[in-house]
């Protein structure tokens, strides 16, 4: 029998993760395109207001679809994988909340401004680190 359950993913998990990753990538590309277009719209007259709305709307739609795919991935995930993702999301949320609440105090002390994007980056990095740490915790040994 050819095993379909390599690593932390069953075959279905791998398919769902692939779908999420593709939409996440599409959302990231759309986000970068929309950001660039809005930042340089004064220098690029070809970017009409309608096109600007279209770019931002596309980024939003792709992000919503990526979110839907992630929820589907979690709902159908192998139970250990779901535990790992719960721990990762917990760490990501906690890190994001701590930075969002405490970093403004450091800004008052003279630290550079972080902004909403900076907090989102911290949250995403903590989520990724949490995934790695939790996967490490439950793996090893044969």
């Amino acid at each position: 029998m050819k095993p379909s359950s390599a690593g932390f993913h069953t075959g279905r998990d791998a398919r769902n993760a692939g779908g999420f990753n593709r939409w996440m990538l599409a959302a990231a590309i759309a986000y970068v395109a929309a950001t660039a277009a809005l930042r340089w719209r004064a220098a690029l007259p070809a970017i009409s207001p309608a096109l600007q709305w279209l770019l931002v709307g596309t980024a939003l739609l792709f992000a919503v679809e990526a979110t839907r795919r992630y929820v589907l991935y979690l709902r159908q995930a192998d139970e250990l994988l779901r535990r790992i993702q719960l721990e990762a999301l917990g760490l990501g949320f906690a890190a994001g909340a701590v930075v969002a609440l405490l970093y403004p105090l450091f800004e008052l002390l003279g630290a550079p401004a972080l902004g909403g994007r900076g907090i989102a980056v911290v949250l995403l990095l903590a989520w990724a680190a949490g995934s790695w740490l939790a996967a490490r915790r439950y793996s090893g040994g044969t």
């Binding site: 029998m1 095993p3 379909s4 359950s5 390599a6 690593g7 932390f8 993913h9 069953t10 998990d13 192998d78 139970e79 250990l80 994988l81 535990r83 915790r137 439950y138 793996s139 090893g140 040994g141 044969t142």
Partner: peptide, 23 residues
């Protein structure tokens, strides 16, 4: 472990983690 995982519909690491007492 992979064969057992397929029979149970879980990942190989889930079987491994149960066997080693991590989960």
């Amino acid at each position: 472990q992979g064969e057992l995982a397929d029979r149970l519909g879980v990942s190989r690491q889930t079987v491994n983690a149960i066997e080693t007492g991590r989960y």
